[in-house]
């Protein structure tokens, strides 16, 4: 699955420049189905890096588990969902030594949630690399009710919590791992612009 190229936007819109190995530093890696190939490509660049790494993979039914395990990471773990791997991921962040690098690959939601955990755990932002692959669906916070709607692919969309029709902003909170959704017909209730598929 190729890397996603995003259109230029405001400075809070995250970008994901891809993964490049930092030799010698301890490595924690996390990928979902769409990001697995990014870790395999990373291993091709630096086999020693992945041999010493802790790799966590969320396969979501994709067939890359065997290929990742065959890279013989120091620790290899598969889990069924982000919430399932979260305790292990948090423990790995807690145990991480100075200089540890975090490599994230896959959907924007996976990268965002993992990055929020890592920053809260005290990892410097410069120690985190990311590669966006797969769906461009967004995780949106409704600014009105504060509910999070996952997997948003249209603009506007309906808040899955309060039901307001929200437009999709590029303003992004790393703390929440979410973009901001704001009522699109606040001034003219009921007059909603035509639905569009969101673009990268």
């Amino acid at each position: 699955m190729p890397r996603t190229e995003f259109t230029p936007s405001i400075t809070t819109r995250p970008v994901y420049p891809g993964l490049s190995p930092v030799p010698g530093a301890a490595a924690l890696m996390l990928a979902d189905a769409s990001g697995a190939e990014a870790l395999i490509e990373l291993a091709l660049q630096d086999a020693a890096l992945i041999a010493a790494a802790h790799v966590i993979y969320i396969p979501e039914g994709a067939p890359f588990g065997a290929a990742l395990a065959a890279l013989h990471p120091k620790h290899y773990h598969e889990g069924p969902s982000f919430s399932a791997i979260l305790p292990r991921f948090r423990k790995a962040l807690l145990d991480a030594h100075m200089g540890t690098r975090l490599y994230l690959a896959g959907s924007e939601t996976l990268i965002g949630l993992a990055m929020a955990e890592a920053l809260a755990a005290g990892l410097p932002v410069d120690a985190i690399q990311s590669d966006h692959r797969g769906s461009i669906a967004r995780r949106m916070q409704c600014v009105h009710c504060k509910g999070i709607t996952e997997g948003v692919t249209t603009d506007p969309f309906t808040c899955s919590h309060c039901g307001l029709t929200l437009f999709v902003r590029d303003h992004y909170s790393r703390r929440l791992a979410a973009f901001q959704g704001v009522c699109v017909d606040a001034e003219t209730p009921g007059i909603v612009p035509e639905l569009q598929e969101i673009k990268p």
């Binding site: 600014v143 009105h144 704001v182 009522c183 606040a186 001034e187 003219t188």
Partner: peptide, 10 residues
């Protein structure tokens, strides 16, 4: 506030 935009927007 954006929180209450749907209330003061009209």
């Amino acid at each position: 506030s954006p929180e209450n935009y749907h209330k003061w927007g009209p």
